[in-house]
């Protein structure tokens, strides 16, 4: 599987991927779109799984509503193990799985697999931290009214943690932009591919800088949107 990512293969891939004669602004536009697409979908998918995982981590913890020591410690260890693998190595490790899921290990769609898988445990911990901030008294009040586990999750934990969870989404998205650039280096497409292939391998430093600027703008915008949404969620009454 490693021959796939040897420099020669990559080089020919890059050439065929962007084409040598394409107009640069168009390349930049395509690459930006690819990054947005990869990051948006992997953020979305990682939240579907990470949210569930984070909720389970919280409610199975000690003295919580569904305390379960074995589930909690098994999930916790898996999350920790996944999080301790450096992303660049993780990218390579999941190639076989990516092939099974999307049929190829190259391109934007293929990148979504490692990005999502790497983000899930991260999201789980962020969600866990957000939910743990909620005063136990609120859960206790709901229990005293006869609420079941599902009602406590959907009517107490998630709504109360919403501002904090939204900030987590911004953090995750920003992290995934960084990861997607790394994925770009091993054939993932997007701004990472553009910067690496043109900027680094072809010594066109201006391209590298342009992609960096685009990335900075993206990150700023996402943080701003995240802050604003979180604020809106927490200051509903004003």
């Amino acid at each position: 599987m490693f021959d796939l990512i040897t420099a020669i293969d990559l080089n020919s891939f890059f050439v065929s991927y962007f084409g040598d004669n394409a107009w640069m602004p168009q390349k930049l536009l395509v690459a930006t779109w690819e990054t947005i697409y990869m990051v948006a979908i992997s953020t979305f998918l990682s939240y579907i799984f990470g949210l569930v995982l984070g909720i389970i981590l919280v409610i199975t913890s000690k003295n919580h509503i569904s305390e379960n020591k074995s589930v909690n410690s098994v999930l916790g260890s898996i999350v920790n193990a996944t999080r301790s693998i450096p992303f660049i190595i993780f990218l390579i490790l999941v190639i076989p799985l990516t092939r099974i899921l999307v049929g190829t290990s190259i391109g934007t769609v293929a990148s979504i697999v490692p990005l999502t898988l790497a983000a899930i445990p991260f999201v789980a911990r962020l969600v866990e931290a957000s939910l743990k901030e909620i005063e136990w008294g609120l859960v206790e009040a709901a229990l005293s009214m006869g609420a079941n586990t599902w009602e406590i999750i959907t009517k107490v934990l998630l709504p109360e943690a919403k501002p904090s969870i939204l900030l987590g989404v911004a953090i995750t998205t920003i992290n995934l932009i960084g990861y997607s650039a790394m994925a770009g280096i091993v054939g993932g497409g997007g701004l990472g591919t553009l910067a690496y292939y043109y900027g680094f391998q072809r010594y066109q430093y201006s391209i590298m800088w342009i992609t960096v600027i685009v990335l900075i703008i993206m990150v700023q915008a996402i943080q701003m949107i995240g802050d604003r949404l979180a604020n809106q969620a927490s200051n509903k009454g004003r």
């Binding site: 609120l138 206790e140 009040a141 709504p159 109360e160 919403k162 969620a233």
Partner: peptide
Amino acid sequence: FQQFNLLSSR
């Protein structure tokens, strides 16, 4: 309750 325990989201 002493701390009222109202949902701030509602």
